[in-house]
Each structure stands twice: as C-alpha cells, then as structure tokens.
Design a protein around this nucleic acid. Sequence first.
DNA 1: TCATGTATAGAAAGCGCTTGCTGTCACGCT
DNA 2: AGCGTGACAGCAAGCGCTTTCTATACATGA
Lengths: 349, 349
Amino acid sequence: MTVTLADVAARAQVSPATVSRVLNGNYPVAASTRERVLKAVDELDYVLNGPASALAAATSDLVGILVNDIADPFFGIMASAIQAEIGGPGGRAGGERLAVVCNTGGSPERELTYLTLLQRQRAAAVVLTGGAIEDAAHQAAMDTKVRKLADAGTRVVLCGRPPAPETGAIALTFDNRGGGQELTEHLIGLGHRRLGYIAGPEERTTTRHRLEGHRAALAAHGIEEDPRWTVHGRYDRRSGYEATLELLRRDPSLTAVVAANDSVALGACAALRDSGLRIPEDVSVAGFDDLPFSIDAVPALTTVRLPLAEAGARAGRIAMGREEAPPGGIASVRGELMVRGSSGVPRVS
Amino acid sequence: MTVTLADVAARAQVSPATVSRVLNGNYPVAASTRERVLKAVDELDYVLNGPASALAAATSDLVGILVNDIADPFFGIMASAIQAEIGGPGGRAGGERLAVVCNTGGSPERELTYLTLLQRQRAAAVVLTGGAIEDAAHQAAMDTKVRKLADAGTRVVLCGRPPAPETGAIALTFDNRGGGQELTEHLIGLGHRRLGYIAGPEERTTTRHRLEGHRAALAAHGIEEDPRWTVHGRYDRRSGYEATLELLRRDPSLTAVVAANDSVALGACAALRDSGLRIPEDVSVAGFDDLPFSIDAVPALTTVRLPLAEAGARAGRIAMGREEAPPGGIASVRGELMVRGSSGVPRVS
DNA sequence: TCATGTATAGAAAGCGCTTGCTGTCACGCT
DNA sequence: AGCGTGACAGCAAGCGCTTTCTATACATGA
C-alpha cells in the first residue's frame, strides 16, 4: 500500500542504503545514481516515514515551543519569531524541521505533560516561553524534566522566563523588574503620588518581578505604599476592568493605574471611561509589553516595550545551535519605556 | 543509557509484551502484574519512545493544526479551541495526543511543506484553518496532498476554509459572504451611500467572499460602486491605515469605511483620527471577526462576530472522531452582526 | 474425570529506516 | 607487474516498540 524506501530502491536499481544516503545527503553518492534515485522518489511519490527514521537515527526533527496562551499575541509574536528561525519549511534553516507550538493554557500539569510528550518524541529542541510558576514542587518537577531532556541531547531554551540553574537550559530573561521600575518612575516624575497597581496572578514570576519593580520605584521616591493600592487578577482585559473598579472603590483619589500588561491596561481604560473619568486628565494609565494594539488605544498607551520578536528569534537560533549561548547561559533582555498619551500630569487635588 | 521497554520488563519480571500492554491498556493484564509493571516504570523513570511505537503500531498521536499567522488572535483563538478538544495533555480527550500548531505565515510553499512533514510523521489528524489561496496550481497541489493524507488514514478538517470537494476533507466554512453583506446593509440602512472598502490580499478566498458580500449589498440597494472605493491590502493594522489615507485621497466624500477585518479597521480608525475626522460623526467604520480588542476601540467597533472558538472546538472534535461530520462533509458557520459605536448616521452633505 | 473454555503471559516476527563495515572497481604510483 | 588508495555501493544488524500467535494454568460443565 504505502511506498517504502525499499520500493524506491528497487525502482532505482540500488540498495535501500543508497536511497537513504541520497535522501539524507551525508555520504558520497555518484551524481548519476543520485539522479536515478531522485527520479524514482518522484515517480513513486515517496514520503519518508518519520517515525522509522527517527527510530533508526535516534534523532528527530521535531522542535517544541511551549506557550501559556496561544490566543494571546504576547505569545503569538514570540512563537512566530521562534518558529521562523527554527526553520520549519521555508525558514532560514537548512533542514526541514517540524516546529510545533504547544499550548499549556498556563496549567502546570499540561506544561509538564507536554514536556514528557516532547521527550517521548525525542525532540531536537524545546523552547519554553513566558513566566514560570512559583510553586516549589512544580518548579522542582520542571527542573528535573528539563535536566533530563538536556541530558538526552535536547537543547532547551527559556525565552522570557527566569533561568533554571543547573538544568542545562539557556535562559533569555526579560528584565521585568527594571521595566516596571522605570515605568513607575516615569509616573512619579509626572507628579503622581497615589498609584494603583493591577498585578497578574500571584504565582507567576512575571507578576512578582513587575510588581517588585513598581515597589522599588515607589520606595526610591519615599512613597509609602498603601496595601489597598494593589489588586491581583488574571492577565486579561476583563480582569483589568474589574480590578480597576475595585481600586476606584477602595481609593477614589488615585491618579494613576499601572497594569500588569497591556490587555489589563485596556480593561482599566474601559473601566475608567465607564466611571466617567478622563485619561490622562483624571487618571493616567500604563501597561506593559507594548503589544501592537496598544498604540491604537485612545489615548495611546504608555507602556514598556518588550522586544518579543527579537528575543524569540534569538531563542530560536540558540535552540538550533546557530547562535552561541550567552555567557553563563543567561542573558537579560531589557524593555524600553514608551511614553504615550495615556500618562500625564495628575490633576491638582 | 536510556531506559527501554525491555529494561522495565526485566525489572518487573515480565515480558516486554506485557509492559507494552500495560502501557497501552488494550489487552487484559492481571491487576497484580499491572501494578508491578507500573512500579518498575516509575522507578526507572521510563519514557516511551514515540518514534518506535509509532513505527511499530503504524499510527502516531500527533495532530497538526495549520494557521496562517500565529501572532494574529484570529488564528490564536481558533488554534486554542482546537487544541483544547484534540486533547493535548489535560484536554477533554482521553489519550494523550500531541496537538501541534504550525505557522505557515500565509506562504503557499510552507503550507504544502508542513503538510508533507505531517504526512511524514503519519499524523493522526490535521486541521487547516483560515482562507485558502486562489491559485489554481497551488490549490490542485493542496487537494492532491489532502487526498493523499485522507487516503492514508489521516483525518483532515478545514476550519474557516472553503470546502475541498473530492478530497475527503471535512469543511467548516465561515459565511464570509453573508456576513459581509449583512454588515454593509447595516451601513446602507443608516443612510450611507458612499462606502469605501479596504479588502485583504487579492488571492485569498476570504478576501473575495467578504468583498462579494459587500458588493451584493450595494447592488441590492441600487448603489453603483465607484472603482475608486476599493483598495486591497494586507490583513493588518498598518495596511488599514495606509489604505484609508488612500481612500480619503481618492474620494474625500466617503461617509463609511468597511474593513476586511478588525485589525484593518483599527488602522482605519487611526488614519481617520489623524486626518481630523470623527468616528462615526464624519465617517463610520466597520470591521470583521470581532476579535477581543474590537470592543476596546473608541468608539467600539461595529463588526461581524465569527464564532472562532466554537468552530475551532467543533473542528477539533470532528478531527478526533468525537463528533459526526456534517451532512455532505460541509457546514457553513454564520457570523453575527455586532452594531456598536463606530457606525452611525452619515453627516448630511 | 476429561474435554473445553477462559484468562493471562510469552515468543518472535516484523514496522521502515540508518549506518558500520565490507566489498568492488578503476586508478595511479613505485 | 604489484599494490595502496579513494570513491562508491551493498550487506546486514539493529533502533524500541506492537501484535499475532502460541502456551500455560486453572476453572468449568458434562
């Protein structure tokens, strides 16, 4: 039924070994022979059996990309950049690799299971994106898994994720703390003294780092933080909307709202508008990430731009061994403050 | 070095066959034996060799999802819904399947190559999302490939894509034409008579269908279309911005701009604002898809909601054989007109 | 009691490919 | 003439698993 290597060999009047070598191109084959083989391949419409060759060669051309939420452009942009470098068909890379993205939905178990599945497939490389989960047990499990993968020859790269020392993984980490601090300092510089903060889910490293940056800025300027000023939520618009209403309820005198990311900030804007407040005259708003839509908000969102595409591309190259790993296996990637219309001088109260 | 089935068998004092059967659970194994085996698996930290079992069983647990642009939430939302149904770890499905999304970037070659790669991996199913490319040669090549996949036992589902008759693929098609028509009729109903249209890339079926719907609405109301009123571009914000400026240049008296999708519409809004025009007082704007951010535009975007998540989920279930295919293998999925602030009665000229 | 059935385990034959090793041949050198 | 050498090509041994067929051990009914 299905065409096999042997069929091609028979048709080209050579041994299966020769066909294999022509197809893999890592052994000298006379031009005339090669041509005959390729002709047979074409005529029979032969397609290599992936599992069989992976088994025999003990390697596979699968590369996994783990993302928290594939519907979120934050991950989409990174995944796209990674995939472009990995190769996939038409990528910059030579050999054809199957770059696949796996959606964990932010669930620790799925994260782990996908890693096992990729291990099972003997993936050539794995790129993990997005913040890690701060649960000791889960982190230990992940580290073990990652080390096992690395030991088995799978290259593991963390993109926008905190380093995992001793696991053999290369880390490209976003400087969320620095970005958060810079952003809040910008607002303080404008004169804000009462700033609400809408944080992401508590257990994520990204959440903690951004919040720490925010607090560092406050501390640096001698602003004592009111516990009521911080609300935790999810990384989505809805959460931003609700959290903003809550902040307003707790302290209507806030002059600025800093959001965990741009989606949350958009929700915050909507909530403020619905509460009859103007942006930035009454309340300034700031986001994080600088996703494409942020510039379309009205007013345009002040935020911290993360070089998602660049970082992804670099992670992809490192995963393919086409770029050297950073010294120590860890690199910090900085964000850039983008000051736009949503932040302004606070009203005089 | 690596642990194999045989190692587990030795440790559990059973034959490899038994271990395999315990792991696959499709053959009676005494409870005590099963337990012994599982214990050994656990102790040795055994991970099945995917390629080997795929080879031996002549099936794989890989399911491919092809998308045009993974950074676009339109695809992200569908992919997410599909993947949730396919299973992947923690999905509703039983067995653990590796649902992988492949980013074609809208390139015909990559589309084809990914299909070959998935064929090579003997994928269990493949879901193709997004509009097809209207190039006879490419379409023929795709159809051939799809038929070959289907013949080899891979279930192929088209989600938001025109049917491919005779290929054995199941199609869930979006009614782009109907949605486009309804949308434009809404604008005509408001009193608009001079409507600009920003279309997507010419060669995509989605582009053509939406445009046809638009034109059908115009024709139905006896409005003669000025060729200057249509501009083609890409499906992104930038393109919408530029196209709008072009439309304004060609005919400053337009009272409405209909965009190929929401991202384009956002670009259009930005261009109008930058041109000193108010929305909707001076010019109404409409989009398509109703992506999450559309409601955050100011004013909120009038658009056609496509049930991306629902359609994706259904496609996923069909791909897994957990839902019956629609009669004739083809189903049309309707959009729903969402009237919001960006469309209004035109100014009296 | 013996034939028969039922549940469970093992032996072994591949699945389709890669690759180390072993030819074979034509050359060119001494 | 004799032989080392390089360039190809083929043989055959797996890679780690699944699965068919067979074997064993009881339990059962006549």
